[in-house]
Each structure stands twice: as C-alpha cells, then as structure tokens.
C-alpha cells in the first residue's frame, strides 16, 4: 500500500515536471495577479471568515463520532439481537434530540432569515 502511494506521488511529480518543462514561461506585469474578475485585487484573501462554516464542522464532529459507534453495533447486529436493537434505538433517539435542540437554538439556520428581516422591516416602516 505504501509502495503504491509512493508510486502515485512519483507519477504525479513526473507529470508536473513534464508539464513544467514543456510549458511556456513568461512574466508580464499582471501574469501572477490573482484573478478577481479582471480588476485589481482589493486587499488580501486571508480574511476572517463566517463562523457558520465552523459551526457546521462542529456539528459534523458530534454526529460523526456517534456514527462510529453505530458502525460497531452494525457489525455485531445479528448476535446482539433485540437488546442491541433497543439500545441503538435509544442512542439514535438521543441523536435526534440533539438535532432538535440544535434546530431550536438556531444552529441550523444558515444564512439570512428573510421572514425575521421582513418582520423587522415592516415594524420599522409602519
């Protein structure tokens, strides 16, 4: 397996080297400018990013770790029988409770809540 990975790396490096050797090399004023729709870049792209994506990753960790337990149970499924089934049913019910909780606190509302904004807007304008 390691040999295989090594060979893959070697092959990719060879392809890239070949393309480097064959490819053209030129350097104009704007050759290496990052592409932003054809205009000058406005500031660096190393900017602070919306925490929503971080939240999604956190939620993923919660559910994925629990999926590992479910896989273990799925392997011993026929030996465990009904007791195992009831256990996992409770476990999954817990997961659903977690999901409902996250839903309730608004962790799953990604992006703008249009209804809320419109309500506020109507309040302000009336």
């Amino acid at each position: 397996m390691l040999l295989y990975a090594g060979l893959v790396v070697f092959l990719l490096a060879a392809i890239l080297l070949l393309s480097y050797l064959l490819g053209q090399h030129h350097h104009d004023r704007a050759t290496n400018k990052p592409y932003e729709g054809g205009i000058e870049q406005t500031g660096s792209a190393r900017l602070r990013f919306s925490a929503q994506f971080y939240l999604v990753a956190m939620l993923f960790v919660i559910f994925d770790v629990e999926a590992v337990f479910i896989i273990l149970w799925a392997l011993g499924f026929y030996e465990l029988g009904w007791p195992g089934y009831i256990g996992v049913a409770i476990f999954i019910a817990q997961l659903v409770v977690v999901l409902i909780y996250e839903w309730g606190i608004g962790a799953l509302d990604i992006g703008l809540n249009v209804k809320k904004i419109m309500k506020k807007y109507k309040q302000l304008t009336s």
Binding site: I15, S19, L22, G23, Q24, H25, T31, N32, K33, Y35
Partner: peptide, 12 residues
C-alpha cells in the same frame, strides 16, 4: 493542458 504554463499567483 500538459503544454500550458502553470501559474502561481502572487502572495500564494
């Protein structure tokens, strides 16, 4: 694609 230039942007 093999014959094309591989660019690396400034600041990358």
């Amino acid at each position: 694609l093999m014959m094309k230039e591989g660019l690396t942007p400034d600041g990358a």
